[in-house]
């Protein structure tokens, strides 16, 4: 089975602040890592390969430094890696990002199965997987809890729908977004990292795509525009209590009692 896992490099920490006067964004650290939710998708792919044979490829879109997450995926067991990188892809919103990835997938494929993580920790939208599936006209499922069986033409999975679990069979090729905890991700292996160190990473730029019209990518291909960014508000009616433990406990007890959260002791 040919499996592709979409991965993303995200900041190690989301600690950013906006300077309220200048409006400039201050990032505390430039350190980055693989989006933690993608590890579950990659692990799922590696287990399917073990069972069915085939290859696991990974793809990411980002600056040249995003190679690091492909190297990490190699060290976990991926066979092949694709980096989509081009200045002209900058400023992409969900639609343009998904379209760019779908173009990359057309170029790198065909794949039987495309796996995505639940969401990223920086964008937090959980929308890209679903939009990729549309751009590729593939059936898609999100909230995948477990893969029950996988064959050449179809996979059967359990899908989470909040208050029920559906067992669903979906024909291949298809795209699945997996939940955290579908499989415990393995650690990267040093031996494997060394063995893969000369394995190249394929690079894709706009010129490599089927659609080379720059208007469909990056900021130009993005229907949404960020008008401004600003620090979140905090509440205004506020009190801060200090004192020793018993004093604070007593005050809190009286406050809660006024709220009539329990009966008795009138």
């Amino acid at each position: 089975m040919e499996i592709l896992v979409c991965i993303k490099q995200v900041p190690e920490s989301n600690k950013v602040e906006v300077d309220p006067v200048t409006g400039v964004l201050n990032r505390n650290s430039a350190a980055s890592k693989m989006n933690p939710y993608d590890l579950y998708a990659l692990e799922t792919a590696l287990r399917l390969r073990q069972e069915l044979g085939g290859r696991v490829s990974v793809m990411t879109m980002g600056p040249p430094q995003a190679e690091a997450v492909i190297r990490e995926a190699y060290a976990m067991g991926a066979d092949d890696g694709w980096l989509i990188t081009d200045r002209r892809f900058g400023g992409a919103d969900v639609l343009a990002t998904s379209y760019t990835l779908s173009q990359g997938i057309r170029r790198a494929g065909p794949f039987d199965l495309i796996l995505c993580g639940k969401q990223t920790t920086d964008g937090d939208t959980a929308q890209v997987g679903s939009e990729i599936s549309e751009a590729l006209s593939l059936p898609a499922l999100a909230g995948v809890l477990r893969i029950l069986s996988a064959e050449a033409e179809a996979v059967t999975v359990e899908m989470d729908l909040t208050d029920k679990v559906e067992t669903v069979r979906v024909s291949l090729p298809c795209l699945l977004s997996v939940e955290k905890d579908i499989a415990q991700p393995r650690l990267p292996s040093y031996v494997r990292k060394q063995a893969m160190k000369d394995t190249p990473i394929h690079r894709l730029t706009l010129a490599d795509m089927e659609d080379t019209d720059p208007a469909h990518y990056g900021l130009s291909g993005s229907p949404t525009q960020v008008q401004r960014i600003f620090p979140p508000e905090s509440n205004h009616k506020q009190e801060k209590w200090t004192g020793d433990g018993p004093e604070l406990t007593g005050r809190l007890f009286r406050l809660l009692k006024e709220q009539k959260l329990w009966q008795g002791g009138r």
């Binding site: 950013v16 229907p223 949404t224 960020v226 401004r228 960014i229 600003f230 979140p232």
Partner: peptide, 13 residues
């Protein structure tokens, strides 16, 4: 909320 919610973003289409 954007960037993990540390910042609010105002967005239009």
């Amino acid at each position: 909320p954007a960037f993990g919610g540390n910042i609010m973003a105002q967005i239009v289409t």
